[in-house]
Write a protein that binds this DNA or RNA. Structure first.
Lengths: 211, 211
DNA sequence: TAGATTGTTAATCGATTAACAATC
DNA sequence: TAGATTGTTAATCGATTAACAATC
């Protein structure tokens, strides 16, 4: 049990490498070189080797990386070989679209690890309904109990900006360890909880600068 | 004509600062200190001063930053005081949700700079329809001509992963300078074009690592 | 003036790149 | 073996933090 955590740039790229080699047909060629992988990921070969070396020695000199082996190792590093239980907080239009997108990928892709188990909304007319005959919408009052009971560790937050901090506080208190926030607002989380942003407007503003 | 481009970390934080001071009431207190701004943005005061100093001297020693003045300066730096013409490529469920979200913010927020002018989809049953009685869906064949004619510089890509690269190629050929990609795939863009990713699955995979 | 806070410089930290010995 | 490619070390680059003189 080491408290070692790799830098997030490395983890992001590992996820990209995993996506790429998952699409490679290992029957065609069972090995891939850092040069090839780098080309497909849009980074340098040295970066690929450095990133992988963070977690071990996965390659063979003169040959490259065994695709099937590397795939399994990356999945193991990224916790992508087990189920990750998730909740969706806020079933507005965006939340609904993201929720259904997730359910569909979960059905269609074998080994898609993200398992959306519960949705929540303040609107009483939505509570009790099912999304795609599968995902139940609970009231906000039930949030703490459901999250604890179902062992939910990740939450996607698609509530209005003004409500986001309170939602985050309640989620983390109930045991959520990672949050993906779509609301255009800065949030605080307790130590040990990871917060990522998927804020469309912030991305657009960055793009606008470089015009 | 400045060939100077600030690092994207700085630009992202400037966008955050702008969002924060836009919510501050300058009648309450017309000045904000780097300490206060840092607290609200979740960064260090030194970072705030360094970021702002990249573009000029906006503060007064012993006093802080004039909120209204800083707001205008940040808007000017980020190109957020003029209209930015955008297109939406791919009107699936996610594209529809993002498009409508944008139209709504454009209506409700004065000075929201992003102007969604056209949507595109391959599905003939969607072509010709309007989204929220405002945004017309064009066929993919019309993409090049519409983008050039309307002066569209940013594109949000919400097509399936397999179609994304071709869409990007056509957009950039037609004059698009910035792309926000929602498809789970690595893309190549020509020099001078900026590409950002808003890939939910990649974010979730990163979060899963830190569990 | 005295207290506060900026702008800036220097020190630190961390990530990327380049190079190459090890070795399949 | 000869050629290829890894894992790793050292060099480079860039970003963050700390400290403080300038000055409102």
């Amino acid at each position: 049990m080491r408290p070692f955590r790799a830098p997030e740039e490395v983890i992001r790229r590992l996820a990209v490498y995993l996506r790429i080699i998952s699409r490679l047909d290992e029957l065609d060629n069972p090995y891939v070189s850092s040069k090839e992988l780098a080309e497909m990921a849009g980074v340098s070969p040295a970066q690929v080797r450095k990133d992988l070396a963070t977690f071990g020695e996965f390659g063979k000199q003169g040959v490259g990386y065994d695709i099937r082996f590397l795939k399994d190792e990356l999945k193991s590093i990224l916790n992508a070989n087990c189920c990750v239980n998730m909740a969706l907080i806020g079933v507005g239009e965006l939340g609904m679209a993201l929720g259904r997108y997730n359910l569909r990928r979960r059905e269609q892709e074998k080994n898609y690890p993200f398992n959306l188990l519960a949705a929540f909304d303040v609107d009483p007319s939505k509570v009790g309904k099912l999304i795609d005959q599968k995902l139940r919408i609970f009231s906000m009052e039930e949030l703490d109990e459901i999250i604890s009971r179902l062992g939910i560790v990740l939450a996607m937050i698609t509530v209005p900006a003004g409500a986001a901090q309170e939602v985050v506080d309640r989620c983390t208190a109930a045991g959520v360890k990672g949050i993906l926030n779509f609301a255009p607002v800065t949030l605080k989380v307790p130590p040990g909880v990871r917060l990522h942003h998927a804020d469309m407007t912030l991305e657009l503003q960055q793009l606008a600068y470089y015009l």
